[in-house]
Structure formats: structure tokens, C-alpha cells
């Protein structure tokens, strides 16, 4: 029963897919294909990423993270968060639990925003594809503007978010 409650959202979606298959087979065909493509990607990417997170949690002491990207880490912390984000390490949804772990270990809110922003918007392999299809001026300009935006949003969130707003810092 608890299991059904925990997985109620995915189960509900399975029902939606079944309904689609009966009444709108065209949409259902496309949706099922996309869903399976995504599922395959997740099955390959998620287990290693979570094990890496586990290793980070067990091995890297809080003081080290604090020193690297915590309060008082300054510009160095910003660049380090940015670099961590640009590594080719998969879709954004796996960055959230990672960002949570970093916060728990004492990272600064602004650096976590920069990490997430870089992860989502400024991945190196992604930039290569973007240059190929949309040209260098477009890519370079978007890169510069996005980096600025992420930096500013990080500073704003740093001011507004209090420790009690974070689920990680509750316990």
C-alpha cells in the first residue's frame, strides 16, 4: 500500500498512457517512443551518478566543500562551481540531488545556483552542437549572457534564501 502511495505519480501516468493507446493511438505511439528513449538514457546514466554522489558524501569532508565553494570562497568558489557544472555529466534532473548534497556539505547558495546554471545551460559538448547548428555569434552571445544571468540570479538567491528554506539543512 505504501509502495502504491510512493509511486502514485508514475502509476497514474501509466493509466494515462493506456487511455491514450485506446483512444489516441497516434499520440500514444509517439509518446511511448519518447518515454522509452528517455528511460533507456536514465537507466544508463543514473546509477553511476548516484554512486558518485554516494562516494562524494562518504569521502569528502564537509570542511573541504566549505572551503572550496562555501561562504568566503569568493571568486575561486564561483569558478570551481562553474567548472563542475560544465563537465559533460548528463541531464539537469540528476544535478538536483547532487546540488542538495553540496548544500548539506556547506556550499554557498549562490555557488549552487551557478553550478546548476552551468550544468543546464553551458555544457561543453552542448556548446559544440549549438555552434554547429546556430553559428558561433549566437552561441557565444548566449553563453556570455547566460553566464551573467546565472551569476546575478545566484547573488539574488543568496540574499533571499535562508537556511530554514532548505530541506537539506532542516536536520
Amino acid at each position: 500500500m505504501n509502495l502504491i502511495k510512493k509511486f502514485k505519480a508514475p502509476l497514474l501516468l501509466v493509466l494515462v498512457y493506456l487511455a491514450l493507446a485506446i483512444w489516441w493511438p497516434e499520440i500514444s505511439g509517439r509518446s511511448t517512443k519518447v518515454a522509452f528513449d528517455y528511460l533507456r538514457e536514465m537507466v544508463l546514466i543514473i546509477p553511476p551518478v548516484f554512486v558518485l554522489m554516494g562516494l562524494l558524501e562518504v569521502w569528502v569532508p564537509k570542511e573541504k566543500i566549505k572551503k572550496l565553494i562555501g561562504a568566503g570562497s569568493g571568486l575561486k568558489g564561483f569558478f570551481f562551481s562553474f567548472l563542475m557544472g560544465t563537465l559533460p555529466t548528463g541531464p539537469l534532473y540528476i544535478a538536483f540531488p547532487m546540488a542538495g548534497t553540496l548544500l548539506q556539505k556547506g556550499a554557498k547558495v549562490s555557488n549552487v545556483v551557478v553550478f546548476l546554471g552551468a550544468w543546464a545551460a553551458i555544457k561543453i559538448p552542448q556548446l559544440l552542437v549549438e555552434t554547429e547548428f546556430l553559428g558561433l555569434p549566437f552561441t557565444a552571445l548566449r553563453f556570455a549572457l547566460t553566464l551573467t544571468a546565472v551569476f546575478v540570479i545566484g547573488l539574488i538567491l543568496e540574499k533571499i534564501i535562508k537556511p530554514e528554506d532548505m530541506p537539506q539543512l532542516q536536520d
Partner: peptide, 14 residues
């Protein structure tokens, strides 16, 4: 959450 993302993305792109 991960499974729900798979499902919703499939629906939206469908």
C-alpha cells in the same frame, strides 16, 4: 520523481 519525468516528457512530446 524520475519515472514521472519520463512519463510527462513522453506525453508532452507526443
Amino acid at each position: 520523481g524520475l519515472l514521472a519525468i519520463v512519463g510527462v516528457v513522453g506525453l508532452i512530446l507526443g
